[in-house]
Nucleic acid binder design. Structure first.
Lengths: 250, 250
DNA sequence: CGCATACTTGAACAATGTCAACCTGTGTGG
DNA sequence: CCACACAGGTTGACATTGTTCAAGTATGCG
């Protein structure tokens, strides 16, 4: 099943290749000392805490047999992981029983980095594998006064990651209606009320959802016929039945 | 087209704190010049703020007319951005002329965070908009030996983000053959040589690529008939014509 | 050897893309 | 104020792709 041992491992191993261009050379060292707070806004402090600068991380070595769950959808986020051997998949089961795989993670790769308090994706062993879990709670707080900005920028990266993952899951094997419903709900949630003013053209929407402009237009018209939305004008959408739209998505 | 001014803004603040009435006089002047009036109501509370803020960063306020490029594919990464008003899209033009939109970014959202030295995605103004550019080279608050671990973890997040973006782009409006070719090349690039041992089932591949198991199987067989690959066994793939596969993807 | 699981193949079907025509609102110039 | 052009959007007919359902073929393991 699963055995474990604490191991002192140097987490970095020259993998930190992040380097957004430095004309100043120092940049890579200075710009990224970012503490981490997976959604500090919504989480209790005891689970968070920034990164201890400098300390080598103690990771817990875990072994999983093929097919076993490493963590499940909904589990509290306590760690992120690195694959030492084998392959891991991160995936989501949709309400209609379909499975969407977010990614495969092979030796040396990191998985389990998610924003928010709990895992939206499950992780499972594709093959027998060994992973190292790095607990967030084991990391010392990074709370110097300068830490705030770093924390913030790290939070930005995590938020971008969350959005990107959601986008990928939206694009995989969902119908045009599901994609468009999700899109409209997304924009409705950014504003207040049931009115959505779309800033973009049908072509933009199509290119975002991986559809053609004609399909977007037809689906929008169908939603209107089905009284899910009203379309006072092509860019102005009124949600008439948000719950039915939500049902399409889930 | 584009005018700019340096403003001292607290980067992690919610939009509500980026207000023209700020005691920071320069900001007030800048915002007034653009007729910018932030609206705290447009963002759900749980999506913004929350991050400890405090360290001020100098952001450059930029204004773009509808349709203008903010940065292009291939540009050197110098900054990341925050939308103050309007909507921005980040997108990629594929070699066959199709456009894939990675995301839309509305007021308060961050874009332009990418791993690597140059932007793989272009950013364009969907509407007239105001954004703040935060230059990486301006982030010098942190340095020294303490930064190593934090730097590493930040790098992990950026790498995950990169993979997730690539996955989303792969899923949008690409044929089964293109998806599978990209998948095989991805795994081929993780190993050495032309032999790929697939750790996962056809079902896993299908769920990753947003296809059915039958389509994956058929496409694989077609690749074999076309002599793009050899299939000594179903999990063992030999790339016989990597360039032709690459051509499918690009 | 026989069963179970993974995989492949075929045929019918549904969803979406493609091509083409046609609206509709908006701005411009007469 | 109207005529016109133009861009964005909608709709219809048909083609294509991928899915679904069903059957059949390895392959591995007791």
């Amino acid at each position: 099943m699963q055995s474990s041992a604490v191991a002192r491992t140097a987490i970095g191993d020259s993998e930190a290749e992040y380097r957004p261009t430095s004309s100043k050379g120092r940049l890579s060292a200075t710009s990224a000392a970012f503490g981490y707070a997976p959604s500090a806004a919504t989480q209790p402090a005891n689970e968070r805490g920034g990164l201890a600068a400098g300390a080598a991380l103690a990771g817990q070595v875990l072994r999983f047999d093929e097919g076993r769950a490493i963590y499940a959808n909904g589990d509290t986020i306590r760690s992120f992981y690195k694959v030492m051997s084998g392959v891991v998949r991160t995936c989501l089961i949709t309400s209609d029983g379909r499975r969407q795989i977010d990614g495969f993670h092979a030796e040396g790769e990191i998985f389990g980095l998610e924003a928010g308090g709990e895992h939206r994706l499950a992780a499972e062993a594709v093959t027998d594998c060994v992973v190292v879990a790095y607990r967030w709670s084991g990391l010392e707080a990074f709370d110097g006064s300068e830490g705030d900005t770093a924390l913030t920028v790290f939070g930005f990266a995590m938020k971008c990651l969350k959005r990107s993952q959601a986008h990928a899951l939206l694009l995989g094997r969902r119908s045009a209606a599901q994609k468009l419903a999700a899109f409209l709900l997304d924009w409705a949630n950014r504003g207040t009320g049931e009115c959505v003013d779309l800033a973009m053209t049908r072509q933009d929407i199509a290119d975002y959802l991986g559809l053609t402009i004609e399909t977007v237009s037809r689906t929008m018209s169908q939603f209107e016929r089905d009284k899910l939305i009203a379309l006072p004008s092509s860019r102005h959408v009124v949600l008439r039945n948000r719950y039915a739209l939500q049902d399409l998505v889930d």
